[in-house]
């Protein structure tokens, strides 16, 4: 680790004022400290925002506002979240371990970096870490990497579970920064790699997430399911957050599908959703919708299994929700 300065901010405004190039905000540190030790992140200065008074979960009219510094555990066990957004509580609980969830913040969870082996190893090339150095994952180990929305430059995946649920819930990310305050609707926070894989999100330098606001829960049944070969404490091979609202007539009134582990960002399966809404809630329709979504998949030799896996997962999950 390179030497750095450390300061603790008392308010979001102060944190943003403290920002200068080379500064990084420190939340729970469960990913940033890890990346600093690897030499992947080399901040000159840390502004600790983990103790900002952004640690409450509040009901605001028909919405729920979750402070950016709320710890993952506290989000998942909150009675209001469990009752109104069970999919979110489930997603958070499948992430990491109890120890990590006790410390990791909501904002930090959103901003965690990919676990691609090349990204995490400073002795190997990686376009995300060192733009222009190349992406050895494409010819090398991409077993757990992206099948959707990837580019020639990067096939990384976003590792968060929580962000997948937030994408399905269409949460809003509240940001403050040198350019003022703004609201970014999920899944718009994270971007696809394109030619600039070094940029995970649409945030600008100095931006600080202050809260995540949850709109009223969507109608219908919801579920979060995570697939992994180790039964716990592992990142998703693929995960799904799904909402399905089937009318009494058996017609799909509403459907949202967000996928994790398949792309550089939580992936809303919009083609599948569009294919389903207004049609019958049958296994056959679910399969057609999943296949419509996966037509755009660009799998690599070692992660081609994610195509049938994702298809099966969409179909099986929707069937479960429909019954």
């Amino acid at each position: 680790m390179k030497p750095f300065d450390y300061t603790r901010a008392d308010s979001a405004a102060q944190a943003v004022r403290e920002y200068a190039p080379g500064t990084m905000y420190l939340g729970g540190g469960t990913n940033l400290v890890d990346l600093m030790r690897l030499g992947v992140a080399e901040p000159e200065r840390l502004v600790d925002v983990s103790r900002l008074p952004l640690d409450t979960i509040e009901s605001v009219r028909d919405r729920v506002r979750v402070g950016a510094a709320v710890r993952n555990t506290d989000l998942a066990v909150d009675p209001m979240i469990r009752a109104r957004y069970p999919m979110l509580a489930r997603a958070v609980l499948t992430g990491a371990s109890g120890q990590v969830r006790n410390v990791a913040t909501v904002a930090g969870n959103l901003l965690q970096r990919t676990r691609c082996a090349y990204f995490q190893d400073v002795t190997r090339p990686c376009n995300k870490r060192r733009p222009g150095s190349g992406c050895p994952a494409i010819a090398g180990d991409h077993t757990n990497l992206a099948i959707l929305g990837s580019s020639e430059a990067c096939v990384a995946t976003h590792p968060s579970d929580m962000a997948v649920a937030l994408a399905a819930l269409e949460a809003e990310v509240h940001v403050t920064g040198p350019g003022g305050d703004r609201i970014i609707p999920m899944p718009g926070l994270h971007r696809l790699p394109g030619e600039e894989p070094e940029r995970d999100t649409v945030l600008e330098p100095g931006d600080l997430i202050t809260a995540v606001e949850l709109p009223p829960p969507p109608a219908g049944a919801t579920v979060y399911r995570k697939v992994r070969e180790r039964a716990s404490f592992a990142f998703a091979l693929v995960s799904i957050a799904a909402v399905l609202d089937v009318g009494d007539d058996g017609v799909v009134a509403g459907c949202r599908i967000a996928l994790g582990g398949v792309a550089h960002a939580p992936w809303r399966a919009e083609r599948a959703e569009q294919a389903l809404i207004g049609g019958p809630a049958t296994g056959e329709a679910f399969l057609r919708a999943a296949e419509a979504e996966l037509e755009q998949a660009r799998p690599l030799p070692r992660n081609a299994y994610k195509v049938p896996l994702t298809r099966n997962l969409i179909v099986s999950t929707l069937e479960g929700l429909a019954s």
Binding site: G28, L46, T73
Partner: peptide
């Protein structure tokens, strides 16, 4: 492991279990 991947460094910080390898002393 020094990266939050094994749990061997678990301690209680303000009563909650946490990984001491991922906590900076200053923080």
């Amino acid at each position: 492991c020094d990266h939050g991947q094994c749990g061997a460094c678990t301690v209680l910080i303000d009563g909650r279990r946490a990984l001491s390898c991922l906590a900076l002393g200053v923080a």
